[in-house]
Design a protein around this nucleic acid. Structure first.
Length: 124
RNA sequence: AAAGUGAGUUGCCUUAUCGUUCUAAAUAUAUUUUAGAAAGGAAAGUCCGGACACCAUAGCGUAACAUAAUGGGUAACGCCCGUCUAUUAUAUACUAAUAUGGACAAGUGCAACAGAAAGUAUGUACAGGUAAUGCUGUAGUGAAACCAGGUAAACUCUAUGUGGUGCAAUGCUAUGUAAACCAGCGUUUGAGUGUUUCGCGCACAAGUUGGAGGGUAAGCAGUUACAUUUUAACAGCAAUGUUAGAAGCAGAUAAAUGAUAAGGAUUGUGUUUUUUCACAAUACAGAAUCCGGCUUAUAGACUCACUUUUAUA
């Protein structure tokens, strides 16, 4: 199975990020928050990761959390890959303590379930 | 040998699987394959000094900030290395450490305890002296008692130095377009701009400020080849320099350098006579235009110097 996550799939454009925060809907599974919306894209999705500077003042800690979340997402990215529609995605870490890999995996699993539900609703 | 203090160096390793960025090559031209490279001693604080870029570059006064023995090093410095000096420590020696380092003979301020009095001086006792008087000396307090006293890590003064903005600099390309509309101030009776703390002065000067509205917000250069790193020789007490050889060593931009598993290493704790075994820990911390410093953070390991204690000779 393809688990790659190259540069093309990163959310970079300022315009797209602004429109995502303006129009996007959110799924919450503490300590993760997913903001998403549909958009016409070349790729099946574009994804970004974010950590609040308020709770993590050191760059090392922020990098660590972003890397872990990205790793978790990378392994499950197939559930966001659909043929018809494309998505903009933004994951935000809301917690106030450094998470472990397993902790994040659990949270992501919750988000996965919610995502499947919303998808089925969407199709219906 | 142990402990302590100071200075310096270092900053866990291997394998497998799955990934990220850049460069090169190959083709099947793509979410391809192969090869190579990919965080630090502080990348941190943004405190000094530069490089580089743009703007400015009559002057005078004023303000602010920095520096302060002396010689050298350096692109430069408020940094570094010598020497002198001061203080502290001891083993009293050109040993070590150190936020010692212009001026108290311009002015203002400050000074515990003791003391009559710490500066608007002059009490007590004794002695001397005078027409007379703290006029003179001694005693007593204190680190210091008219001595040009101490204190500038008190204000202050003196000397010297400092133009401003920072890679979101700056240049090019792309896209869109509006030299339009409304209002204020103004065109030699001068709005405004520059001179970047302010004032005067000087120069330029026909536009300029606000509103409403429209467009872009992405690509390239700058941007990683040099005050570069490293080895040797020579010069120098040293900081450092010169010559010769070798090396190419991050380049992201909502920001790559990661995740998981296994094994090992080191340290600690528990158990055990020991081996073993089990558990835990492996710091501080993440490049953002680039260098030189300073400051702060730092588990563990190693080296050197000094001190103390113990043992042996």
């Amino acid at each position: 199975m393809n688990e790659k996550l190259p540069k093309v799939l990163k959310l970079k454009s300022k315009k797209q990020i602004e429109s995502l925060f303006k129009n996007g809907k959110s799924l919450k599974a503490y300590p993760l928050l997913l903001i998403y919306c549909t958009e016409d894209l070349d790729t099946s999705f574009k994804v970004g990761f974010s950590v609040s500077k308020r709770f993590f003042k050191q760059a090392v800690q922020r990098n660590r959390i972003k890397r872990l979340t990205r790793e978790v997402f990378r392994k499950k990215k197939h559930i966001f890959t659909l043929d018809e529609t494309q998505f903009l995605l933004m994951f935000i870490y809301l917690g106030k303590e450094l998470p472990s890999y397993e902790h994040l995996e659990k949270a992501f699993h919750k988000i996965e379930n919610k995502w499947q539900k919303t998808l089925s609703n969407y199709e219906a």
